[in-house]
Simulated scan of single mutants.
Amino acid sequence: MFDSFFCILIPNLLLICIFTFNHYSVRLSFSMMGIIPRATSSATAVESDGSFQDTDTVPTPKVIIDQDSDPDATVVEITFGDRLGALLDTMNALKNLGLNVSKANVYLDSSGKHNKFAITKASTGRKVEDPELLEAIRLTIINNLLEYHPESSSQLAMGATFGVEPPKEKVDVDIATHIRVDDDGPDRSLLYVETADRPGLLVDLVKIITDINITVESGEFDTEGLLAKAKFHVSYKGKAIIRPLQQVLANSLRYFLRRPTTEEGSF
């Protein structure tokens, strides 16, 4: 055995131990970087700046496209717990679609950090009205989120197709469809749709509505994990939709969005 020993700790760097054995000294150095314990978790998040963050649960990704709150711009809000970074890659990807993107604000609440952007078309400086471009915005954001946060693949309907890391189990999007039409004054009505999300859904909803000569004025489209929620201001020839036409609209949407477990009643 050694006759004596003592150790010198250099914080965050090295642990140096000196042992005396038969009048000889032996110095052993250990890197502290290799023995600092790390917290373990069931999921690892990748921030948009390339950093990693450990967490126990994967929050529900949310993307909101808001056409109502700003008359001059399309407002996009992204929430994913506290995992989102600066989202610079997302903003650049949106700019590649021919859009002007400005960071509006970031705020915190119990559901996490909310990142808001104001988006306008670069060619006109006005808000985005084209449903296909609005859907492209939504899918671009979701694809970018999946790229930097592969652990969310099983929580997004697009995860099985577009996710960098395919979900371990089949994504269950067997969600019942709910439809409701309310009056919103004499000149327009409010249409609410809640259904399973999928690529192209926003474009398809607008097409179904306009195919029966109903005008879509504005609205909001929310992606909450596997669930899609739409709220549209609609009218028929400049007036609110009468009851018989409301039923036609609801039936058309319900038929298109039907699933084996679709509930026929409104919510």
Rank of each mutant, 00 (worst) to 15 (best):
L134S: 09
A136E: 15
A136C: 12
R138T: 08
L139H: 13
L139D: 11
L139C: 11
I141L: 09
I141A: 02
I142G: 04
N143W: 04
N143M: 02
N144S: 07
N144Y: 04
L145K: 01
L146D: 06
L146N: 01
E147L: 14
E147F: 14
E147K: 14
Y148R: 11
H149Y: 08
H149N: 13
P150H: 00
E151H: 08
E151D: 13
E151I: 10
S152F: 05
S152G: 06
S153E: 03
S153M: 02
S153R: 02
S154Q: 12
L156M: 10
L156C: 05
L156T: 06
L156F: 07
L156E: 01
A157P: 13
A157E: 01
G159C: 10
A160W: 02
A160K: 04
A160M: 07
T161H: 15
T161D: 15
F162C: 14
F162A: 15
G163M: 04
G163Y: 03
V164G: 14
V164Q: 15
E165F: 08
P166H: 01
P166Y: 06
P167W: 08
P167I: 09
P167E: 06
P167H: 08
P167V: 08
E169W: 03
E169T: 09
K170C: 07
K170Q: 14
V171L: 09
D172P: 01
V173F: 08
V173W: 03
V173I: 14
I175L: 09
I175E: 08
A176I: 00
A176G: 15
A176K: 15
